[in-house]
């Protein structure tokens, strides 16, 4: 089953602490928050590191490479879609969708690369497609 029919994506709710993330998404970049105190990257992004509670976190640009940690094709939706966790090359696993692909051929640990998909009146969403 190919992902051909159009699926309307709701716009994400943007708060001051995540404005930079969505501004970057609008420019086709995926940002990951990294802590300069403990060196750990995390997702979703927060000003205070969830590992060491330092406020010395900074935005870094992700390479856009990753692998599928797990996925599930929502067959019962009006337009079926592939829900997924992708393990970013930078470490964190993020909730996302796998798009522009044959859903029946998806596999855990499969390499994927970053793409962006437009939302309804908001910044585009980072998603992934088989690499």
């Amino acid at each position: 089953m190919a992902d051909t029919k159009e699926r309307k994506l709701p716009a994400p709710a943007i708060s001051p602490e995540t404005q930079a993330y969505w501004d970057a998404a609008g420019k086709g970049k995926l940002l990951v928050k990294k802590c300069t105190a403990c060196g750990e990257a995390h997702h979703y992004p927060r000003p205070i590191c969830p590992f060491c509670f330092s406020d010395k976190t900074e935005w870094t640009e992700a390479s856009g490479k990753g692998t599928i940690y797990s996925f599930s094709v929502m067959r019962r939706a009006p337009v079926p879609y592939a829900m997924a966790y992708v393990t970013l090359a930078e470490g964190p696993r993020m909730v996302t969708n796998i798009v522009d692909c044959d859903f029946d051929k998806l596999k855990c640990d499969q390499p994927v690369k970053l793409v962006f998909k437009p939302t309804d009146g908001g910044p585009p969403l980072p998603m992934f497609t088989p690499a």
Binding site: L9, P10, A11, P12, S72, R76, M83, V95, N97
Partner: peptide
């Protein structure tokens, strides 16, 4: 929510993962 809801998480697909 901004990092999950727009992608369409439901009760069933998150358990399915």
């Amino acid at each position: 929510e901004p990092f999950e809801f727009p992608y369409g998480p439901t009760v069933v697909n998150m358990y399915a993962m």
